[in-house]
Design a protein around this nucleic acid. Structure first.
Lengths: 346, 346
DNA sequence: CTGAAAGCGCTTACAG
DNA sequence: CTGAAAGCGCTTACAG
């Protein structure tokens, strides 16, 4: 086996010989220039540039134990929330000189575990978004490598939490003021922290305003699942729904329109994340989850922790607030009923 | 500086001592087990497992020159086309034991160049999707590392091309049959291969069917840009538009609805990619770009090429076909005119 | 089939 | 401020 592409790249030794200094000096010119005379640094850097020398990260990593990489593990890049999160995280990492591995777990705990294990040696730390895994397992991985969790509340583990409680409470209040008396909350996956948090907020706010809340579990936070939930929502007599994310809400718009029902005339809808919300038609009323910011702040938390000793135990809460757009309106009077209650939407 | 987390991980030496064999034998038990007695392999693997030993990829990479990593460089993960592409690529790479770096270039050539340079030493090859960079630059990088380009046609460089020509021709024919006589093509970015290909297909098919085609450049392939193009499209007297992707088409739906115009009653629309097409309202008629498949096949091409000698020169064309949904209908008679021709949509 | 040893390209105490 | 040398954890000709 030939070692691919080795031929062309100059090593530290070549540069040292060419510049008439030792390897150590070349190394220092790049990593600790203040240890050297400005003149030496200049000389080394100049010949390095002339030869096209770039420090080999892999060798550096083996020697120092630091790779300059992080990994972002998430359930599904195709979900706009995670895409935005990733964009924010990648940009923040790049700004601080780190490269980013991506691991898409396809919403499964097993893939999550596998990726965390496999990438461990190649990264200085992990970002784990909306983990589907057991707490015990997460702690096991966190003990091995610095790890920041996004949207899961685990004591003593670095975490960034988007707290949408306030936004959902405001949304319920808005619906109450608009005259809605029965509402639904559509969530998924059942075990996810974000979902539980939002469900609880809706429940509490519903009680406070004296309106009844029906909880619906979607199979997955997807467009299809949202569409498929419309029948159940209508069957409860709800005139409005809040959903775990905008994708599900958008699915519900489609499901309602399948039945000839329009939003917000016949039914009101509130989504969450605010990433595709402004692109749907009609534009979604949504709780802003500050996705990109959450990703960037998680990177900061992780990289800051790398500079210090001791375990990583910072948590950061980003409040998510309600953004009112075009899918919330007065309750219909009388409440509409499902025009095709017996038909499966699939 | 303490070397982070080094303490816990057993090395090959520990395993060798514990199993009573040499380091070479432990190494071979993992990478070339058929060189050893089954009994030896079993013994080594057992003690490795007992000690929790996992081969250190970094050390392996330094020694062999192969990292087991690839990088996917793309303009914007937030664009559903690229998100789907990435998902396909990452899954295919993972299936073959490779980890994937992600580089988001924010649609700029400079970031693209930077990421390609910085990641070079850490990867065995690159996937470069819809490059915004000069051909010369791409060739420079391709000479350094195996590289497969997606949606750019560069002779002698490995590439996967989604050929949507047929789909766009069919779309124009469909519009002609529906009675449309003036249509628009809305594209971006101007220099992109996909955009040029689609623009040319629409132009040619328009000529063939005797209908006039007006070309519009959107600033960026985004929802906002699509929305902003509606005025220009209506001003040309077009009754239908084809767009470079679904996001732009969705933006046009919004822009039309801003003016009280409905789709497909007042205006017909054809998008491309078919990734969010089924989630828009109304559902978009779109040309399927087989995004996930393109990503997966590009990975296969790249990894296959790593096994052989010589330069990488395979190209693969994936045809994209028209999927008719709800945004294409008969031409309005007479053609509608812009209800607010002088107002800026922004 | 197995081992001893050199080497991958860096970094970093330790001297001077 | 600079250098000689050991070491990071593997792999792989080369012997036997």
């Amino acid at each position: 086996m030939t070692k691919p592409q080795k031929a062309g790249r100059p090593t530290i030794r070549i540069v040292a010989k060419e510049a008439g200094v030792s390897q150590a000096t070349v190394s220092r010119a790049f990593s600790q220039p203040d240890m050297l005379t400005p003149a030496t640094v200049a000389k080394v850097l100049a010949t390095a540039k002339r030869l096209g020398y770039v420090p080999n990260q892999i060798a550096r990593a083996l020697s120092t134990g630091r790779s300059g990489n992080i990994a972002l593990i998430l359930p599904d890049v195709t979900n706009p929330f995670f895409a935005a999160l990733m964009r924010g995280a990648q940009a923040a990492a790049h700004k601080r000189g780190y490269a980013t591995f991506l691991g898409d777990t396809d919403e499964t705990a097993a893939q999550e575990d596998l990726l965390l294990t496999k990438l461990a040696v190649q990264v200085d730390g992990f970002l784990l978004a909306s983990p589907r895994q057991s707490e015990e397992n997460i702690r096991k991985h966190a003990a091995r490598r610095p790890l920041v969790v996004i949207n899961r509340d685990l004591a003593d583990i670095g975490r960034v939490l988007v707290d949408t409680t306030g936004g959902f409470r405001d949304a319920v209040r808005l619906l109450a003021e608009l005259g809605h008396r029965r509402i639904a909350y559509v969530g998924a996956p059942r075990g996810s922290w974000s979902n539980q948090q939002r469900a609880a907020a809706v429940e509490a706010a519903g009680a406070e305003h004296g309106i009844s809340v029906h909880q619906i579990d979607a199979v997955r936070p997807s467009h299809e699942a949202g569409q498929a939930c419309v029948g159940e929502a209508l069957a409860t007599g709800a005139t409005a729904a809040l959903t775990v994310d905008d994708v599900v809400a958008q699915g519900m718009i489609a499901g309602l329109s399948d039945r000839g029902l329009s939003v917000p005339g016949d039914f009101s809808l509130v989504g969450c994340d605010n990433v595709i919300a402004s692109t749907t038609y009609p534009q979604l009323t949504s709780v802003d989850a500050h996705c990109a910011e959450a990703g960037a702040r998680a990177v900061d938390l992780l990289l800051d922790s790398l500079l210090e000793e001791g375990p990583l135990d910072n948590s950061l809460v980003i409040p998510g607030e309600l953004i009112v757009r075009g899918t919330t309106g007065p309750a219909p009077n009388p409440p509409i009923s499902d025009p095709r209650p017996t038909t499966d939407t699939r």
